[in-house]
Design a protein around this nucleic acid. Structure first.
Lengths: 340, 340
DNA sequence: AATTGGCAGTCAAATACCCGGAGTGCCAGT
DNA sequence: ACTGGCACTCCGGGTATTTGACTGCCAATT
């Protein structure tokens, strides 16, 4: 049973605590906000909020601090995604506007996001699964070694070095390249792999070994989507907010560098209607992130592939601002990578 | 005027201080090391070392700590690059052995180096300047947009999206591609740029615009060496060694993320005969790194291109071990990327 | 039933203080 | 050149004390 005013109290507790890092007491609330009631009344409300486990007192007789659950209610019901300032919008434009290849775009994006939020920013590479083969190139490096390059929609380039069992001559390589491109060009990546597997048999047994090696490499290369790659920036911000973590931030940083943790987190987060998701404190599967929150949103590329981006910081963060920033950057990125 | 024994004393001061993080006193020296003289004698030596500004006392009557200059003497004259343990060697083998493309190799390398040293590790992408053009590919994306891919020795792939002023047809594109490859293949990158500039004029005026755009993009692409790209890992280690920095490590991390600082540092460091260089404390141009040391070595690729790699940590670091690790990894990387 | 003022109780953080120990510098003696 | 001895210094840790900011509760009020 939480009254309407109690929720209002929760809101100001979250806001004030985020702003000051100090437990907020009943007196300071009535001073700073026009509630029109006395401190004792606020205290009663606070007692209710504490019963609901939305706030807690670090020690007897001190102000209150939001719990994970309190932040959750704030994010779900109370936070207004305050729109970015025009200065911030402009920063996005000028920062991302002039970039060329995908690596560049993502590198800039992650820096931008970390600057907008003052948190650690993370951007996941788009999956390839839904895009199509644009071109395949085979470049001889030595008599028994070549480099295969797969170029796909959306400007992704995947390269690999292939060791061959026997020597190969330029002429045959040219044939092979032509044939592969003819049969794979425009195919979706998943289809391309199946088509490839039938291709090896169309050549004379003498060639079979060498073609087999190349085909195997290409299949692997096409199948291996780089969705498991992350770029991040702004780890210095984590140090800045060190006091918001009870222990050392070492395990936190470690978990971040161990990208596996984040990838799983991203995988588990489904985008909801507002397009943005939060995982708060203990909600995170990894204990190292028990005092951290992760805000993510999805973005899409022209190839139709979906990936995520977001920020990570202490649970005591400015959710309103950060959620707005994540959403804005995700939208801008979708527009940038989607236009074709 | 520093006696031989004084230097020995300096050595053990560095070693003990690095091991314990506590200022080391004359008494503990004679206890832990068999100098065959009394504590008072050691004190005399320490007074000399202090005169030479090789050690300093944090406050009156406390043990001594090496100065930057002291570390410098240690690194230059006293450190024995203790060879890696077989376990460490094996780690290098298994970690780097099975990697495919350049991105992968460098990503693994930097992780490995950070694990071997427990410091922040940094690897610079090889410059392209000395390598040669292997192949150039032009792939149409839309009627007025194409992707150009430059493949060079050593397996580097550089991609870019080119906007064309007018439409271009496949046939002509094929011609152009053939012509470009014929004239550039095998050329050193620097020569390739000059050759390219003459190429545009060989086409009919009608084509000039579109060819000009492509040539301009390619030139830019060839000239832009990616030496300005760094990968790094192990920033969590910096947090672990936080106590070794008097202030916050925030500016340190910031300087690291601001890759410009490191790139300049790398650029200024010339490899000496032993193949490894150290920049200690205040020797670093950037004040943010005044309490940090950077150890670097160069590595080369088959294309003959040179780049650097190294570690960064507090001045109070295990130089012997870290220098050995940097050297070993650099050598292994040279072998891995150099074999052809 | 909701609100208020008042009051006693509680705890953290800040301050002051003291003391032990490690280490130095110096000097006179070997 | 080295050593033992001695006076001196200062840091760090421990304890005690004070201060201040809260809360929780209750009786009174609207």
């Amino acid at each position: 049973m939480v009254s309407q005013r109690s929720l209002e109290v929760l809101r100001v507790i979250v806001q004030d605590y985020v702003a000051s890092r100090e437990p907020v007491g009943s007196k300071s609330i009535v001073e700073r906000h026009a509630f029109g009631v006395s401190a004792a009344t606020i205290r009663n409300d606070m007692a209710m909020l504490e019963d609901e486990d939305l706030i807690t007192a670090p020690h007897t007789s001190s102000g209150r601090v939001p719990t994970d659950k309190g932040y959750r209610v704030f994010v779900d019901q109370l936070a207004d995604l305050r729109p970015l300032t025009t200065a911030q919008r402009q920063a996005i434009e000028t920062f991302l506007g002039r970039s060329v290849d995908l690596d560049d775009v993502l590198a800039r994006t992650v820096r931008l996001l970390s600057q907008l939020t003052n948190q650690v920013a993370i951007v996941q590479y788009p999956t390839l699964s839904k895009s199509r083969v644009r071109h395949i190139e085979l470049v001889p490096l030595a008599s028994t070694r070549l480099m295969s390059v797969v170029i796909t929609d959306g400007g992704r380039v995947e390269q690999r070095i292939v060791e061959l069992p026997t020597e190969i001559d330029e002429v045959f390589l040219g044939e092979l390249r032509a044939k592969i491109n003819a049969s794979l060009g425009g195919l979706a990546l998943t289809d391309a792999v199946t088509t490839l597997s039938t291709l090896a048999q169309q050549f004379s047994p003498v060639r079979e070994n060498v073609v087999g090696a190349i085909v195997a490499a290409l299949s692997e290369q096409i199948a291996a989507n780089r969705a498991d790659r992350l770029v991040m920036a702004g780890t210095a911000n984590l140090v800045r907010t060190e006091e918001d973590f009870s222990g050392s931030i070492f395990p936190v940083l470690e978990a971040i560098e161990e990208q596996v943790t984040l990838l799983r987190l991203f995988g588990e987060m489904h985008v909801d209607q507002s397009g943005i998701r939060a995982s708060i404190g203990r909600e995170n599967a990894d204990v190292a992130l028990a005092e951290a929150s992760v805000l993510t949103s999805g973005y899409t590329t022209s190839g139709g592939s979906l990936a995520r981006l977001g920020v990570l910081g202490p649970t005591r963060m400015d959710y309103s601002n950060n959620m707005a920033a994540v959403r804005a950057v995700a939208r801008y990125l979708t527009r940038l990578l989607g236009e074709e």
